[in-house]
Amino acid sequence: MTTTEYNQCVRELADGLYRFACKSMNDQEEAKDVVQQAFVTLWEKREMVAAEKGKSFLFTIVYRRCMDIHRTRGRTRSTENLNENVLTEQPKPHDLKKILQNALSTLDTQAKNLVLLKDYEGYSYEEIATLTDLNTTQVKVYLHRARKELRQYLVSRAHII
């Protein structure tokens, strides 16, 4: 990867990586650090990374870093605790986006990351499997389970409202 290609990765991927890290960790400063660290790693290893592999390389680093942070800080919260937090925020019924973000935060870290990679970045099951060191079947199962949990959350929320 040349310097020009690296800079192109910065311009095209920095926002997506930051968005993914923010949603994954719910911490913008921490997300910024993770993204910067990912680009520093890419720059140091640019001789070994082809230009077309830049995106998957960066998302793999950010995904793993997010998982590490969740593990070390014990921030993988249970769904029950998150449901309580989400319910106290009381978003308006018509604010579907806010409701969805709250529902997303009820998922465990891995399921949330899979949903983010699928919906925000549009990766296929196979690509997500490559990024996350899972197999395609696992990705499919975890994603479907996450979707069902999100739907369950929305149904229960509608019932409450």
């Binding site: 910065v10 926002d15 910067q36």
Partner: peptide, 14 residues
């Protein structure tokens, strides 16, 4: 349930 794009989130230190 598909998440809408979050275009307002932009990395500042680009």
């Amino acid at each position: 349930l598909v998440l809408p794009p979050e275009d307002e989130l932009v990395f500042e230190g680009k």
